[in-house]
Structures are given as structure tokens and as C-alpha cells.
Amino acid sequence: MPDRANDPTDALRRVDLVLRVHDHQIVGPEGELLGNVDDVELAEVDGRWLVTGLMVGPAALSQRLPGKLGTWTHAVWSRLHPDREPTPVVVPMEHVTDIGSAVALDEWAARRLARTLGLELWLREFVVSRIPGAKGGSSDERPGDLVESASSEATEAAEGGSESEAALRPRPDGRPVSGLLGRTGLSPDGERLGRLRDLWALGGPRDGHPEPLRVTHLEFTSHRLGAELGYSADDRQGPALVRAFFRWLHRNDRVVPISALTGIDDTGRTVTVETTHMRHPFDQ
């Protein structure tokens, strides 16, 4: 684990959702690799914007791929999915135990997420287990055991939409972060602030205990190039030349508190914000 004492951003416990959560590896309690955070689900609960879940899998990823590629990814996924009207997989935030270089889940969520990995289960059953020498599970298990248990879980999940499937559904009021990113920020008098590049949040799991992760700020930029490299989160991150370039490129970046958000226009792909508390990301 990284040395937390020397961690400059940790004191604030600020989590930049795009930088620190999007595209990070998801691991289970045994260190098993369960997918990437393909998107993040937000919902407005009692007037607060909360991170409610991690979206995983082709459905979530397809929203973030450009043009035809995204459409096709989504089409192939929904065609191959055993359900008639499949929904994207969303892991509820209560089951996230750590956000570090990887995002860790508890056993409950890890087990259910593993059952949604359709391609893995299919290849395991129909391709890899048929190759001589295929092994899985502990040494006293027969080669077929893992496949059998996996496929019986899969059938169980397919039959009558068991509790586990329902548990990883998106919230009706949830919206993916990717749907907001890239939107143009407008001041009340119509001035452009740049495009939404990241959302800052506070809270999140600590030492294995889930805590709500609450969105606090919106960050706008005039250049999305290099927006995920981390130079706006840590003003001392080297190397100096690269930092200087990206700080110059992002010199007009602006953050506003989430309370300044006054409207989300889904047709015009804009968000309207009050600009009274607007500042540069590095200003305190």
C-alpha cells in the first residue's frame, strides 16, 4: 500500500471522480480482478449529489467510446445478453471498501459481480475448460468443478431474476458521470466556462468502512487534453517540464461548488452554474 502519511491530497480526502475512480481496476477481497470502473453512477438524494454506484461492463464502457464503436459495443452486448432487456451492471457504493490504485469490493459484491462476467463464464465453459490441462479452483477440485459451479450460478441467476441480479441494477434516478462530462458550463448570463472535466467528491470508504461519497465541486476546462493526468489535483506532481506544460494549458480551468449548480440541460448538453464562488483549482 502506498504511504498515506506522505499523501498530499489525503488530508482533504478529496476524490476526483474521473482521475481517481473512472477506469480504475476493481478487485475483490481475494485480490481477484473483476473489471474496470467503466463509469460512475450519481444520484441526487435529499438535495445532495452522491456517488451511488460503480458501473461495470460493456454497457457502461460503450457510453464512453466514440461514435459507431460505442453504438456497436452496446448493440453486441445487448444482443448477446441472456436477458431480453438487459440493464447495465452497477455495484452499489455501500459495497466498496477502498478507493486506492484499485477499487476494492466486499465479498457480497465481488461474488455477484463475478456472475455478471458473461464472456468469461462462456469462454470458461465452452473453450478453456475443454483444453487438456485446464485447472481451476483448489488442487483437490476436479477440473470441471469451477465450470459447473460457475454455470450453475449463471443458470440460477438467469432463472427468475434472482436476488443477486436485481442487486446490481442501476437506480431509477441515477445518472452516469460520463453523461455530464464534456458538457459546456454556462454562467447565468450565458458566458462559457469551458467543458466539465471532473467532479470532486468528499468522503468514500475509509479502512474498509463504507461512507457516502458526496460530490462537492465541478471542474471546468478549456482543454480536455491531459485532463486525467493528475496535474490539476497535485500542484507538485513532476516532472517539472510536463507539469509546466499542463498547468499552462489548464490555466483557465475553473471550479465551482456543487451548490452553484442551477440547471442541467440534457438537450443542449450544458450545465448552468452561479459564478460567485468560482476559482482556479489550485486557489484555496
Binding site: Q25, I26, E32, L33, L34, G35, N36, D38, V56, L119, E120, L121, L123, R124, V127, V128, S129, I131, G133, A134, K135, G136, G137, P143, L146, V147
Partner: peptide, 19 residues
Amino acid sequence: LGWQWGKYVEPLRAARFHT
């Protein structure tokens, strides 16, 4: 893609990787 990979797990646990 975030798939399970590696030779440190048994092949059946990394079916996509081995494919």
C-alpha cells in the same frame, strides 16, 4: 478491459486471458 489475467491464477479463472 479489467479482465482477470496472469499465470499466477489457474487458467480457468482467467479464461479470457488464455483465449
